[in-house]
Design a protein around this nucleic acid. Sequence first.
DNA 1: ATGAAAGCGCTAACAC
DNA 2: GTGTTAGCGCTTTCAT
Lengths: 341, 341
Amino acid sequence: MGRQRPGTPTLEEVAARAGVGRGTVSRVVNNASGVRDSTRRAVQQAIAELGYVPNLAARSLAGHRADAVALVITETDWRLFGEPFFTEIVHAVGDALTDTPVQLLLTLVRTDTERQRFVEYARGGRVDGVLLMSVRAEDPLPDMLAKAGLPTVMLGRRSGDESVTYVDADNAGGARGAVTHLLNGGRTTIGAITGPLDMYVAQCRLRGYREALELAGVEVRPSLIVEGGDFTEESGRRAMAGLIARHPELDAVFAASDSMASGALNALRTAGRRVPQDVAVIGFDDSQPARPTDPPLTTVRQPLEEIGRTMVRLLLEEMEDTPVAWRHVILRTELVLRDSA
Amino acid sequence: MGRQRPGTPTLEEVAARAGVGRGTVSRVVNNASGVRDSTRRAVQQAIAELGYVPNLAARSLAGHRADAVALVITETDWRLFGEPFFTEIVHAVGDALTDTPVQLLLTLVRTDTERQRFVEYARGGRVDGVLLMSVRAEDPLPDMLAKAGLPTVMLGRRSGDESVTYVDADNAGGARGAVTHLLNGGRTTIGAITGPLDMYVAQCRLRGYREALELAGVEVRPSLIVEGGDFTEESGRRAMAGLIARHPELDAVFAASDSMASGALNALRTAGRRVPQDVAVIGFDDSQPARPTDPPLTTVRQPLEEIGRTMVRLLLEEMEDTPVAWRHVILRTELVLRDSA
DNA sequence: ATGAAAGCGCTAACAC
DNA sequence: GTGTTAGCGCTTTCAT
């Protein structure tokens, strides 16, 4: 292995060619102020002629920064790879970084080996900050990074009192709004298909469901609540099948993800129910514009673009030398009416 | 921005603590040979006590290597993000790197700005090599990297005489095999739904179709060949609709991607044909195990795992100081019979 | 086997 | 404004 070809011109050579000092060249390269325009031009020409490219290792070593941030993709995220959810967040993060000199690095962390290697990479100073997506509660990575003093921002939180900086959607509020909407529409028997309840996000969405009912003075009936093993369509289908069997009188359902909502929809159709005439379905949108084959279900939309942008903003702030207190941002969701539910 | 927290212990401090010289610590860290076992242990203890982590910028600067490679995701790839194709390649690459100290970095290159930034990143020596996926013919990136002398390996090639090192599936051979299989099965009127013919991969697959017919002494009829605008299902559907209208007697189709094959299948069903009884369909598999909703079509399978592994092998070899001639590897494909086509 | 020393190419602080 | 200089923390000869 041998990088940066031998023969790569250095700052020094540029300086010599332009007939100036190293410092001046450095100023030009980093376009700092305080350089006469004529000098600047001379240096720029020398740079062009020599095809000079700064050695980033040297810059990093001297400047104490890497001008790069990592977005970690855990095994959990991996399944999301295809999801519009994932894609949109990455896009948003990339966009937010466009006007900075910061390079975005996506890194896979699937095994302990990879986690270890990444931590050494990050602690070694190759990145100035880390973005984490969909972290599982037991994942030691956030704390490892925190202990190492690395600026870190998570998407979502692991529990109610998350210590690491995070950006999250208002899951409880979104769910509450959705269920309230159903109640206002005259629906009375509303089921809930939740995500795995060992995940905080699932707990929040279920809480929102409960709160809406309580606010409306409607009894919360445990038999109307079904926990899905995961957020998939199949899970939703199965949960719905159980629900409809137990409660044929059911006239609305809140599902904790749009995939589950799709599954629920299929189950309902199989059972001969019309949607939304007989039963209204609202999903909590995890993967945005549903696949073309999906029905236009009403969903609780997360502001993915804003989430990504906010994560970057927080991260950049933490990367400033000013030590910042832990921060938590919760962004509102939006109810998108796609049918007349 | 300020990385590697002030207060991070250095090699020097470890050396002091262990009562040895800097060089010795370096040897231990890189576990080089020629260190007495007792010394090694002493150093290791000092490292543990101090929580020492090597500064990668310094290592890079002194050692002329980054111990990292980039896998570039272009805008073109971006659509593939969800595809099993993409996922499997990335997985394979990650796996192939497991036993090395090399960190895999996925980088987005969607715009000129991002391309520029990435090139500076790479030329700046932050990575030792670059992996490229599904490069479009006009993309300047491969040549920019080549000019910079950066070890680069592409998945697929841009044309018949690609100069950059690449790993490709035997597209022509795969297509030839598929069509030969159809012929052997007694099918006589075989249509071809190609990809966009400005892409080399599409040309190769079409060529394979032609060759199979010629080898069998069957006339190649231009009206049986339809070019799709892209590799999508919709493209396949449209192409098939045209084909079946023009050639109702058609009894088999070769499609240049599995998505197109799915589209073709839908179009056939819409037209009232039974598959594979009336019309056999074989797709060239770009995205591996089709979605659950897809029919179990017979496909030409690409050895994705092997492709990824091979890419890494070539890249690592190019990264060795020994300058290597350009290399091209073409891997065989496999016909997977999923129905009785 | 191990210590000492010479850089790697850059930034930033300081002098002029 | 611009040149000079002292490191940044490590790898790698070269002595010993």
